[in-house]
Computed example of a mutant assay.
Amino acid sequence: MTTWITICDTCKRDGWETRAPGQTDGERLAALIETAAPEEIRTRRISCLMGCSEGCNIAIQAEGKLSYTLGRFEPAPDAAEAIVDYAARHAQSDTGVVPYRDWPQGVKGHFVTRHPPLPTE
């Protein structure tokens, strides 16, 4: 079962124009996550996860597992590494539940929503 990191590439934090003109914070975070993700963790970009007040936003999903939306990330290498680390732990879990003690420090305080898996019937 493939775990996906979906990255909002339109997220803009305050002052984004001065950090990387012509590139949103979401695009910057997406590039960092794509570079950090191993082959078994898939990534995709989407224009708007509708969490603008919580940007930068990502979702971690896999068929038949709990899915999570996380936000309030800076577009920085340490954030990307924590996101990928959590996604790897999600991939190893049968249900998508990662015990709190195993959460990377960089994702703590960033969870926005949790979604149950879609029904199979």
Rank of each mutant, 00 (worst) to 15 (best):
T43Q: 01
T43I: 04
R44P: 08
R45M: 06
R45W: 06
R45H: 08
R45N: 04
R45K: 13
I46E: 12
I46V: 15
S47I: 05
S47Y: 08
C48Y: 08
C48Q: 09
L49F: 11
L49V: 11
L49W: 10
L49K: 10
M50C: 11
M50E: 14
M50Q: 12
G51T: 02
G51W: 06
G51Q: 06
C52E: 13
C52Q: 10
S53R: 14
S53F: 14
E54T: 10
G55Q: 09
G55V: 05
G55S: 15
C56P: 05
I58A: 00
I58M: 00
I58R: 00
I58S: 00
I60P: 01
I60V: 15
Q61K: 12
A62R: 00
E63M: 10
E63W: 10
E63P: 04
K65W: 08
L66Q: 08
Y68H: 08
T69F: 12
T69Q: 09
L70V: 06
L70P: 02
L70I: 03
G71V: 03
G71H: 02
G71I: 02
E74N: 13
E74Y: 15
E74R: 14
P75C: 04
A76E: 15
A76Q: 14
P77Y: 05
P77I: 05
P77K: 02
P77W: 03
D78P: 11
D78V: 09
A79G: 07
A80N: 06
A80C: 02
E81K: 15
A82C: 05
A82F: 00
A82N: 01
A82H: 07
I83G: 00
I83F: 01
I83W: 04
V84I: 06
A87P: 01
A88D: 04
A88E: 09
A88Q: 14
R89M: 06
R89G: 05
A91E: 02
A91W: 01
S93H: 06
S93T: 05
S93G: 08
S93L: 07
D94L: 15
T95E: 04
T95L: 00
G96P: 07
G96C: 06
V97F: 12
V97P: 02
V97E: 14
V97H: 12
V98S: 02
V98R: 01
P99R: 06
P99N: 08
P99F: 08
Y100I: 11
Y100P: 01
Y100Q: 03
Y100D: 03
R101L: 13
D102Q: 14
D102C: 03
D102S: 10
W103V: 04
W103H: 15
P104Y: 07
Q105W: 09
Q105I: 12
G106L: 00
G106M: 00
V107A: 07
V107G: 05
V107T: 09
K108C: 08
K108G: 04
K108R: 15
G109D: 10
G109N: 12
F111N: 01
F111S: 02
F111V: 08
V112C: 09
T113D: 05
R114L: 03
R114V: 06
R114M: 13
R114K: 09
